[in-house]
Amino acid sequence: MGKLGRFVCIAAPLLLTLASLICQVLVFMGQLNRNSAIQRDLYFFKANTKDFNPKPLSDIPDIPHTDTDNRLINALQGVSTSASLKDFYQVGLWNYCEGEIDASGKDTIVYCSPRKASYWFNPIEVWEFKDITPDQIYNDEMKKGIDAYSKVAKFAFAAWVIAAILTGVEFIVGIFAVLSRWGSVVTTVVAAAQTIFIIAAAGSSTAIYLTLAGVFRSVLAPYGIKAELGANMFAVVWLAVICSVAAGFFWLISICCCSGKSPHKKVVVEKAPYTYERVASPYLGAQQSGVESHAMAPVGGQGYGGHGAAYEPYREQRV
């Protein structure tokens, strides 16, 4: 029962580690295959440009750098006129996908960009603004937001990769934790490092896309461009974090509990020192070994050890 109990104790964190790894794989798969419904619905950020209108949909208060805003809108108008501006753009960890929205409101992805490590969504490249630099087209708010997003996106990508590698290592090492507590110690150390990186990855991803969506809403919402976060993607992201934290906790518990040793041990009774054992009679042999000893008076005046002695001989045994 010892090994069985150890296996049951390790099963919970092992399954949680596997669940976290599956969630991370889904994060990596988002937007990689436009023909997969699951991957299509997994995105960090979505910009809906179908209702773009170069004329403001509402009154815009006077704000600094209005001329810069106008240059951005004029550039977007030129792209929309040439049909280069798609109806929506979805951003994943490796790339982005773009598509069209029909009259019924159904989304159809028509193109996904090649995979790229440390990817970040660059509107100037995606919207094909030619011979335009960020300083020429962005106001201060949007420029700061895009710059921060591009830098943190690289960190977030690296954190996701490291977290996924550590999760795989944690799962493999965790299998050997069934054998001993030392396995749990090693797995707990790996799990602690993995938890740090996955929290960093999830936190930075959430922060940068919240920032990006806020910038789009404040600058481009008056012109009919909508921005939203991917609810499905962030649900998977934070589910991976929850599973990782829970697995780390159970790995730590497994160090102190469920040793894997059987609770039933053979008890050896040792004799106390200076006890006496009965010596079999040389006359009666082993038959006398079960007879109780009795002290009897000597007969015929023979002392202890004599031929007529009635005393039963004993020998001293030191243990």
Results as ranks from 00 to 15, higher is better:
91 V>D: 01
91 V>N: 01
92 G>Q: 03
92 G>T: 03
93 L>N: 02
93 L>W: 03
94 W>R: 09
94 W>Y: 15
95 N>K: 06
95 N>F: 00
96 Y>K: 00
97 C>N: 01
97 C>R: 00
97 C>S: 05
98 E>C: 06
98 E>D: 11
99 G>A: 01
99 G>Q: 00
100 E>C: 07
101 I>K: 01
101 I>R: 01
102 D>H: 04
103 A>H: 10
103 A>G: 09
104 S>R: 07
104 S>C: 05
106 K>Q: 10
107 D>N: 13
108 T>A: 11
108 T>E: 12
108 T>N: 13
109 I>L: 14
110 V>C: 07
110 V>S: 14
110 V>W: 03
111 Y>K: 15
111 Y>A: 12
111 Y>M: 11
112 C>D: 00
114 P>Q: 08
115 R>C: 08
116 K>Q: 14
116 K>R: 15
116 K>P: 02
117 A>V: 05
118 S>P: 08
119 Y>S: 06
119 Y>E: 02
122 N>A: 08
122 N>R: 04
124 I>D: 03
124 I>R: 05
125 E>P: 06
126 V>A: 04
126 V>N: 00
127 W>I: 02
129 F>H: 05
130 K>H: 12
130 K>Q: 14
132 I>H: 04
133 T>L: 14
133 T>A: 12
134 P>Y: 06
135 D>R: 10
135 D>T: 11
136 Q>F: 11
136 Q>E: 15
136 Q>I: 14
136 Q>M: 13
136 Q>G: 13
137 I>F: 10
137 I>Y: 05
138 Y>T: 12
138 Y>D: 07
138 Y>W: 15
138 Y>R: 11
139 N>G: 07
141 E>C: 10
141 E>N: 10
142 M>G: 02
142 M>R: 04
142 M>V: 05
142 M>H: 06
143 K>N: 13
144 K>E: 14
146 I>N: 01
149 Y>W: 05
149 Y>I: 02
150 S>Y: 11
150 S>L: 09
151 K>F: 13
152 V>A: 09
153 A>N: 04
153 A>C: 07
155 F>A: 13
156 A>P: 02
156 A>N: 10
157 F>A: 07
159 A>E: 07
160 W>K: 03
160 W>T: 03
161 V>N: 02
161 V>W: 04
162 I>T: 12
162 I>R: 07
163 A>K: 01
163 A>Q: 01
163 A>H: 00
163 A>W: 00
163 A>G: 00
164 A>K: 10
165 I>R: 10
166 L>Q: 02
167 T>Y: 13
167 T>K: 12
167 T>A: 15
170 E>W: 12
170 E>M: 11
170 E>C: 15
171 F>R: 01
171 F>Q: 00
